[in-house]
Simulated scan of single mutants.
Amino acid sequence: MRRAALYIGAAAVLAVAWGVRTWAERDLTGDGRDVGLLQLRLTYNPGAAFSLGAEHPTLVLIITSVLCLAIAIAGWWAAAHRPGLQLAGMASILGGALANLTDRLGDGVVTDYFHSGWWPTFNLPDVTIVIGALLLMLAEIRRPADSRQTPAATTAPATDPGSPSGA
């Protein structure tokens, strides 16, 4: 059930991202439209984050495909024993990554539409990936301190190197 929730959550993020991308491609132009702190402006990015790898779109596609598969496998494994906040974070990351991957599959570019003027133009899947990472960090911060210790730290006895017995 927890695994199904993870993948249903990712599918929901993917569906919403597809809908927003469809709207952006239909209704936005390169000139943009101001909406408060952001401007809605249609652009296309052949690279990954910050246009990295734009000159090698096939390599970007391969790497993002492998990363999506790795995230999906890690999610499958983690869903069985991780708290709900971590599952929500993983679903958000997986859904955003899949949305960008499927957008790239058609023509080798990702559709971007949020422009701030001080940050590279980005899209909703980018936002969900960042939110997912923040949820994972929050889940880690909220985890009890004793469950974060390494097995060696919890099982090794404390020793005093200055004593004859070492204890």
Rank of each mutant, 00 (worst) to 15 (best):
G30R: 11
G30V: 09
D31F: 11
G32P: 02
G32K: 04
D34R: 15
D34L: 15
D34P: 15
V35T: 04
G36L: 03
G36S: 01
L38I: 11
L38H: 12
L40W: 08
L40D: 09
L40E: 04
L40P: 05
T43P: 08
P46C: 13
G47S: 08
G47L: 12
A48K: 06
A48P: 07
A49W: 10
A49S: 13
A49Y: 12
F50I: 08
F50W: 15
S51Q: 11
S51L: 14
L52E: 11
G53V: 11
G53N: 12
E55H: 14
E55P: 08
H56G: 07
H56L: 12
T58Y: 13
V60G: 12
I62K: 10
I62V: 15
T64A: 10
T64G: 13
S65P: 10
V66R: 08
V66L: 15
I71S: 09
A72N: 08
A72F: 06
A72S: 12
I73Y: 08
A74L: 15
A74E: 06
A74N: 09
W76G: 09
A78M: 11
A79K: 02
A79P: 07
A80L: 07
P83Q: 05
P83D: 09
G84Q: 03
G84T: 13
L85C: 00
L87S: 04
A88K: 05
A88W: 07
G89W: 01
G89S: 01
G89D: 00
M90R: 01
M90S: 09
A91R: 02
S92I: 04
I93G: 04
L94S: 03
G95N: 05
G95R: 07
G96R: 05
A97Y: 03
A97M: 04
L98D: 06
L98P: 00
A99I: 08
A99Q: 06
L101G: 11
T102S: 11
D103L: 01
R104A: 09
L105F: 15
G106H: 15
G108V: 04
V110Q: 09
T111V: 14
T111S: 12
Y113N: 09
H115F: 15
H115Q: 10
G117H: 06
G117T: 04
G117D: 02
W118D: 06
W118H: 13
W119Q: 11
P120H: 04
P120T: 03
F122K: 01
F122V: 00
N123S: 04
N123L: 01
N123G: 03
L124Q: 01
L124S: 00
P125D: 02
D126Q: 04
D126A: 02
D126I: 00
D126K: 03
T128Q: 00
I129T: 03
I129W: 02
V130C: 03
V130M: 05
L135N: 01
L136D: 02
L136R: 00
L136Q: 03
A139N: 02
A139D: 00
E140A: 10
I141R: 06
R142N: 03
R143T: 15
D146G: 10
R148P: 07
R148T: 07
Q149G: 13
T150G: 12
T150S: 14
P151W: 07
A152P: 07
A152L: 14
A152Q: 14
A153H: 10
T154V: 14
